[in-house]
């Protein structure tokens, strides 16, 4: 409870600093919105040309797209501190965090709350709503809950990715651009049903960076598609996000341990 209070105190103070540069904040939000809008328009245009994608309709793909973008927008808004962590290390400000009586992970998480990610968030939510509106029957309550859990799992997974990227800074001292392949590439890949990909690519996004298990498996069950897995696996899938986050936390711990025995 106290941690929550401290989190809000810190995060809101970051929001206040963002609001001091209002014009730039507005531009970033719009830019964030337009960037993801272009991807969505691209998907819509492809469906307009080709009609369907291996048995998936535009509405169904919009749900996939919506889940993954909504998750990523939330994770990026919450975990922006990890995204910018390379600078903290490079400028030697990690010592400051170690001098305060709180877990470092908590402090980095609370240091930033990036409001401009509202752009992608609105866009993703819009696509999700559009996709759901196009379904032949309205959602049951349990289906809505499954969707919510999927988004939550996605947030955890993307936070895990951001955390891995930040943890790598303890060794490399700079941000590894290669992680952007996983995040942005992952969003691009998971915006479509995974069964359209070659097996190795599908397996990568099911087992290694389990993005697909967060939107593809549950959506496939929701829309009654054929799955190479038992149906119950879809309900467990969002747990993969939590597992991935746990991996990120382990990496972070190892990184901090290394930092504290090398001082740099």
């Amino acid at each position: 409870m106290r941690a929550m209070r401290t989190y809000f105190a810190l995060a809101l103070s970051d929001v206040r600093s963002q609001m001091q540069h209002r014009a730039s904040f507005v531009l970033q939000t719009i830019g964030n919105f337009v960037a993801s809008l272009m991807d969505a328009l691209g998907i819509a245009a492809l469906f307009a040309s080709f009609g369907a994608l291996q048995g998936w309709s535009l509405y169904e793909v919009a749900v996939l797209y919506g889940i993954v973008n909504l998750s990523f927008a939330l994770a990026e808004a919450l975990g922006r501190g990890f995204g910018e962590f390379a600078r903290v290390i490079r400028e030697g400000n990690f010592d400051r965090l170690l001098l305060r009586p709180r877990a470092t992970l908590f402090q980095v998480l609370a240091s930033r709350l990036e409001v401009s990610r509202l752009g992608r968030l609105l866009q993703g939510a819009g696509m999700l709503a559009l996709g759901l509106a196009g379904l032949p029957e309205p959602l049951h309550l349990w289906q809505g809950l499954l969707l919510a859990v999927c988004v939550l799992g996605g947030v955890l997974l993307f936070l895990g990715l951001l955390l891995l990227q930040a943890s790598a800074c303890f060794w490399t001292l700079e941000s590894l651009e290669v992680f952007n392949i996983l995040t942005y590439g992952g969003i691009q890949a998971a915006a479509y049903p995974l069964d359209i990909y070659k097996k190795w690519l599908r397996d990568f996004f099911l087992y290694i960076v389990p993005l697909g298990s967060l939107n593809y498996l549950p959506s496939a069950v929701l829309f009654g598609k054929d799955l190479p897995f038992p149906v119950w696996s879809a309900y467990l899938a969002p747990l993969a996000g939590a597992a991935f986050l746990a991996l990120g936390i382990l990496a972070w711990r190892a990184g901090v341990r290394r930092y504290r025995s090398s001082g740099s």
Binding site: L46, A48, S49, F50, G51, A52, L53, Q54, I196, Y197
Partner: peptide, 9 residues
């Protein structure tokens, strides 16, 4: 994947 269902437009 899209082309698998024909070239469309």
């Amino acid at each position: 994947a899209f082309y698998a269902g024909g070239a469309g437009e």
